[in-house]
Nucleic acid binder design. Structure first.
Lengths: 149, 149
DNA sequence: TTATTTGTCTACTTCATCTATAGAGATTCT
DNA sequence: AGAATCTCTATAGATGAAGTAGACAAATAA
């Protein structure tokens, strides 16, 4: 299970991706549109700012925008930023590897081999799906590109 | 991430599967062999007994055994018993379905569609892998069958 | 029958994490 | 100056994870 925080982060980023051509977007607008508790979303966006996924401007007419291209932001990375490892056990995580304390022998642990398959299957999906791959976003991007011709 | 409890449950059941021909196995033996805190394991085994996966006998010469054939106990079911849904979000779970509170429209939620793929990939692996599929168990089962000839 | 060995049951603790909320502060624009 | 925004610090309640303690019940063997 991913946390609500991670789901909110994804929804907020997806919203920003859809509104990319509109420039700065208010926290309160995102919160209302995606039904995310406002103050909670603030905290999430600060995290995403630290991770350099989004950018903000304060004061009147301020707001948030994406920093990176939606085609470069994978769902897997967003979830990792917020929740940590995608792997079902630490001992099969690439980025958050940790030995299981109780494990007698990791090399022959069969649960580990099975969980590795789960990790790989999960990452295959989430690390190859980017914000730009969501159809509404794609539709907008295509439209935008058409306008530039 | 699965809980330690689920991992302990799997290790304990796998241990029981390996010792199947030996009859009753002591909690303390499993705990020592798999390095699981003894009292914690007790609680886990009681859960598994309620779920009718294992069986126990009290008193001297007591202990635990599997009730079901290791070829009938899937890893997915064990994890579900202990941790609940395998799905990354409730709204794509079959057995633990729940609508996301903040979701504006489930039918068009693209995060949901993506998470459904993750769920399916995970379940494809865990629901088709049984205790008997772990090699050490298989080796013993084969040996046992050979002895019966 | 009594002692010993085992599992059972109830209760508790400790700690961390999730999911927020409140409110003062800093910045920018008009 | 004043309004609109994001920012920072602090706090809090609920939940669950992970583990512990100790009395209790049942089975066996001496």
């Amino acid at each position: 299970m991913i946390s609500k925080k991670a789901k909110y982060a994804l929804k907020a980023l997806l919203y920003l991706a859809k509104q990319q051509d509109r420039g700065l977007v208010l926290i309160s607008e995102i919160a209302a549109a995606e039904r995310i508790p406002r103050k909670f979303l603030e905290a999430i966006l600060v995290d995403l700012k630290v991770q350099q996924i989004v950018q903000s401007t304060r004061g009147k007419n301020g707001g948030y925008t994406l920093v990176k291209d939606p085609a470069q932001i994978s769902v897997g990375n967003v979830i990792r930023m917020v929740d940590g490892p995608l792997a079902p056990v630490h001992c099969v995580s690439h980025l958050y590897y940790r030995k299981c304390e109780e494990c007698v022998d990791e090399a022959t642990c069969e649960i580990r081999l099975l969980m590795k398959r789960v990790r790989d299957a999960t990452c295959d999906i989430l690390d190859t799906t980017f914000l730009a791959d969501f159809s509404k976003v794609t539709a907008l991007v295509v439209e935008e590109e058409a306008n530039q011709i």
